[in-house]
Design a protein around this nucleic acid. Structure first.
Lengths: 264, 264
DNA sequence: GCCCGACCGTTTACGTTGTAAACGGGCCGC
DNA sequence: GCGGCCCGTTTACAACGTAAACGGTCGGGC
């Protein structure tokens, strides 16, 4: 069971080394491993990946670390702050990804491609965490999900400006890129979540009743197999390429991608 | 304060009649208004809009309705189910929107435009509810947020197929459309949420410290005013038009928008 | 006219949650 | 060797979601 497939998604966790996790610098002989903020947050990520966000409780997380709940409060001021830390830790995995670079050595398109796939890899590795990445209120208005890190925003803007984008175009590209990633990845992980929930209760009774309801929606029924196909990887790639092409036009025309209404 | 501006966003709540709310059919002389599922869900939407999702408690919602918490359980099996109802009620506001039609009378582009703006109006009217719309696990894999209603999925597919899209193209368009809406609107409401939170604590101390941190990100600092500009309406419009153009090409070429790699 | 069961909101109760506060033990420098 | 500090535990409490029992207020059958 669970063997890697030939046509595996290059961003899926199985397609790579396996645990691309946050890895709290493991215990190098430290006996039982001392508690500290990083270890706690790492354990929280693990826990959410395994049990889901709703199951994360201070007491349960404590138990997972072999400690009482209150011990966590010496390193983490509150559960809310812990969740902020979880979000930060997860997107910080980008720094450890050898395929994503802070500086564009091979052009801005290569840079954006690598960055996008890096974020997608994170989303797929932590499907239960990603909705948190998507919805937690950002620290500042211009730090947008899912790229919620000043360092990446800076990197992004510099990369594009250095490649010839003017300021307005770079900022505009940042926004378009953010919504592209957010929409595609949130949809993808939410769909994945449904898939695993669905194989939990194959009861039969509910299925029949649900299918009966469907009689009012003949087109949905007719296209059900098409609709159920998971082509997320291809769609992601296609939409990303389309976005890059759009940005290329913007760059070549040297304008901000404003209301240009060339409708032909 | 709070007066409508000249360049008002046509999808913003102030730009239209005001409360586009769910309106639980008001009390037509029924004294104190009987409890029922619709009224409870309507009150929940109101409550979340006003106080935020985290503040919604069975006891508080009961109090808001002049009733004890346990009374709600006669009409709603659980808080989780109540939230599902909230999501459903909010997207069902689409049916009451006179500018959105279930059937495309003026072509598929008009149909998609109206639908998109209808959803955007809902997102802006209920910014605290929209993340719920975006992240709650859908009932079936092909019911995607934010258009989480079989009736609208059916309507969407029929509209496109009747307009000449083949089945694959219609399904593909449904996916692209969903992620477009999800990404743009989630980003927009999350940004709006930060804006209102930001004007709560203008302390000065934190601001200075935060600004100090920014010294490492000179480009972000330099572009701060550009980054803070809210051009959501224009960006939404532009991305929507781009999507429609893409779909138009797909339609004209009579292909499914698969891996076509014409890279020129 | 009376009574009875159905409806529907209240009361009470329980286990779980996040977190404040007091506690105590083991290790360190003096 | 001993006082203080670091850090995990204990105890405590208010608030939560919800199960169960309760009671009042009806409308209809005898």
């Amino acid at each position: 069971m669970d063997e890697p497939r030939a046509d595996a998604d290059p961003d899926s966790p199985e397609g790579r080394g396996g645990a691309a996790a946050v890895m709290p610098a493991a215990p190098p002989g430290s006996g039982r491993a001392a508690l500290d903020r990083r270890r706690i947050i790492g354990a929280a990520v693990e826990f959410i990946d395994a049990q889901g966000l709703a199951a994360l409780t201070m007491r349960r997380l404590g138990a997972h670390l072999g400690v009482e709940a209150m011990a966590l409060y010496r390193y983490v001021p509150s559960r809310e702050n812990l969740l902020d830390g979880v979000v930060e830790a997860v997107i910080d995995e980008l720094y450890g990804d050898p395929d994503v670079h802070l500086e564009p050595g091979h052009g801005w398109q290569d840079y954006l491609q690598r960055l996008a796939h890096g974020v997608r890899r994170i989303a797929l590795a932590h499907p239960e965490v990603f909705p948190l990445v998507a919805t937690r209120p950002p620290a500042a208005p211009w730090v947008r999900p899912p790229l919620r890190s000043l360092r990446w925003v800076e990197s992004f803007l510099v990369a594009l400006i250095d490649s010839g984008f003017n300021q307005e175009a770079a900022v505009s590209a940042y926004r378009a890129y953010s919504s592209f990633l957010l929409g595609h990845l949130l949809l993808e992980v939410s769909q994945k979540g449904v898939a695993v929930n669905a194989e939990d209760q194959p009861e039969g009774v509910e299925e029949a009743q649900e299918a009966a309801d469907l009689s009012q929606y003949p087109t949905v029924v007719r296209l059900e197999s098409l609709l159920s196909l998971d082509e997320s990887a291809a769609e992601f790639e296609e939409a990303l390429e389309n976005l890059l092409e759009r940005l290329e036009v913007v760059l070549r025309e040297g304008r901000a991608p404003r209301r240009g209404d060339h409708r032909d």
